[in-house]
Every structure is written in structure tokens, then in C-alpha cells.
Design a protein around this nucleic acid. Structure first.
Lengths: 176, 176
DNA sequence: TCACAAAACTGGTATATGCCACTATTATCA
DNA sequence: TGATAATAGTGGCATATACCAGTTTTGTGA
């Protein structure tokens, strides 16, 4: 199998605007294109996973905490690392974490060695909620892959992972 | 030239986590992948366009209004259509528009025919600000294309446009 | 024409996210 | 060791976005 190109040859009309999306330049600004897709996907995934009572981002966060714990990564779990991994501002992560802590899904434990550090980890309740959300998430992901194409979907994620990478950001900033 | 595949063969390491991003499953959930990329791009584009004093989304909105006006689309401009075009909730659009109206870049004019309808359009000040932002935006976009590859970039935008399209959303929901 | 459904917004509330200023803690180095 | 820099978070403020409950205005059909 070749590398699947993201440019599906016969995709559903790439425009939501009577086939004239070019007129608005939607396919011109990459940043806008990503945000539009993010809003759409948030709606689509959210509709499916809503019954679990978690926003997509929250489920994503819980899943990350679960995987990080499973990998028993020593450095993982600190808010700093978590923020970097999520490509999120540290303070934004703090704010996002609040409702999860409030609802008892996550707990913040200060590090004994370095009292500046705090680690976030799933509570039992959080693990249960993550599992609940995971089942629903899988439905959404499967539906997406079936519709967009499993290989195209994987290719898209790879491309996005490159864009989101720190290497990419560093290279972009060097261009300044 | 073939269709450029988004799966660049020798990209910068697709992981920001010591080359082990797979461990976190970042390349597994499409929704998460898109959001991470959106956050990163927001930062990168934002750093470049910040001097104009507009958030990327705001510039995107002003640009849309400009293009819509240029196309002299009769239906365009109503908040309803604008929201659909931006793949945004109507109320979210309303909230997002507020600071732009407050700062005098956009004005909301009620429709004479149908008093339920309001249209958003650029003021002169808004057009000037859009032009100012456009120049900076171009720097960011050029840098992105140079780094990611112009063809890969275009392919990525096409893929994202498909995901963001109403056809895609409709098909996704039919799968329920 | 009048009751009722539909459409287009508005406002409230909650999460998502970023920037900046500030505090607490730790690390450096003269 | 003591002044200073660096690190890790927190809190405030502002925008971004969504959902839902109204409110106003139109459209519809009996």
C-alpha cells in the first residue's frame, strides 16, 4: 500500500457553501481551516460523547492522564509537562482542570521533593468516567474513520501531529 | 505532479515527546489531533499577527466579512449565514462579534424587510484593520507554507475543508 | 384573522484558552 | 551565604465557543 494521500480524489464536495467555498478563501488560511474543522469535530464528537457528561477536551485530558499513569512516566503528571503535551498554556490547563478537580475526577498532589511542583492524576471516579467516555468516543472515532477513510484519517492525524509538534513550532519561530 | 500526500516522507519528528508521542495516543484521536494543531497554530499565527491587535479568529471574521461584501452576496452577512460559514454556533458568533462591534470594526444593521434579521458588515475602520492584519497574516501563512510545504499545506486545507463541510457533518450524523 | 409553529437573535451560564502579573520555591554563583 | 535568576503554579481578565431558555417577528393554516 502506498502512503494514502489526504487529497482524496473523489471526496464529498469540499465546500459547505454551494460548492463555492473558494470564494470565501476557506481553503486559503491554514489556521482558519484548522479552527473550522476543530469546531465541527468538536460538535460531531461532542454529540456522541455527551451522554458521558464530559466535553471532548475533558475526555482527552482524562485519557492523557490515564495513559501517562500507565506509562508510569516519572516526569509525567506535572502540570508543566501536561501542558506541553497538550500543546496548551500552563494557566489554560489550570483553568481547564478546575471543573475536573471540582467534580472529583482529577486530584492535584503536590510533589514532596520540589514543593513548587504539582501532579495531576485520575481518581477512581475519574478512571470510571474515562472508561465510560472511552466507549462513546470509540463510536465517534469509528464513524469518522468509516466516513473519511481509515487511511486518510491516519494521514490527517500524522499531518496534524507534525503541525502541533514542538519541532515545527521551533522551526516556525526561527523563521522570525 | 501527483497529488501531494500529506504524509511527508521525511518530516521533522512528528513527536514533541522525545519521539515517543505514540505512547500518548496523540495520533489516535482525530478530534484531539485537530485541537492540538489548532492551539499550536493559534499561537504561531497569533505571535505574528499580534501587532495588529487582533486575535486570529477576529481577523478571520473580518476577512470573511470583507470577502462576503466583495462578492455582494445578497444572503451573506446575516448572522445566521455567517455562523454557518464559520461553522460556529449562532450565539457564539454573537459573543465573538461583541468586542469587534465595541471597538468599531463591525456594525450590525437590522434588515428593513425582515426585522428579525441583522447583518454584520465592516466599518471603514474595520476595513483598515483587516488590511493591516492581512499583511501580517500573509507573513505567517507564507512561513507556514515554506515550512510545511506549499502542496502539503494545500492538501491539508482541502482535507480540513472536507471535515468542516456540512455534507460531512450530515453524513456523520446520519450514521447515528 | 387568530392561534400556533418556525426563524433569527439575545442573554445567561459554563467550559476552553491565552497573556500577564504575582507568589512561592529552588537553583546559581559571586 | 546572600542576592539574583529561574522554575512552577495561581489568579485575574479577555476572548472563543457551546447550549439553552427566552423574546421578537414572520409564516401558516383553520
Amino acid at each position: 500500500m502506498d502512503e494514502p494521500a489526504l487529497t482524496a480524489s473523489t471526496p464529498p464536495a469540499p465546500a459547505s457553501d454551494n460548492g463555492q467555498s473558494d470564494r470565501w478563501g476557506w481553503d486559503y488560511c491554514t489556521n482558519t481551516a484548522v479552527r473550522r474543522a476543530a469546531r465541527r469535530l468538536g460538535q460531531l464528537y461532542g454529540d456522541v460523547t455527551a451522554p458521558a457528561g464530559l466535553m471532548p477536551t475533558q475526555h482527552s485530558l482524562l485519557t492523557h492522564l490515564k495513559l501517562a499513569a500507565a506509562a508510569s512516566d516519572p516526569a509525567a503528571g506535572t502540570l508543566q509537562n501536561l501542558a506541553a503535551a497538550m500543546v496548551m498554556d500552563l494557566s489554560a490547563l489550570g483553568h481547564t482542570l478546575k471543573p475536573l478537580v471540582r467534580d472529583g475526577y482529577v486530584e492535584l498532589v503536590p510533589d514532596a521533593r520540589d514543593r513548587r511542583v504539582k501532579r495531576a492524576r485520575l481518581t477512581e471516579k475519574g478512571e470510571a468516567k474515562q472508561a465510560e467516555g472511552q466507549a462513546l468516543w470509540h463510536v465517534a472515532q469509528s464513524r469518522f474513520d468509516a466516513l473519511f477513510g481509515a487511511q486518510e484519517s491516519a494521514a490527517l492525524r500524522r499531518a496534524l501531529a507534525i503541525v502541533a509538534s514542538e519541532e515545527f513550532a521551533a522551526a516556525f519561530k526561527r523563521g522570525e
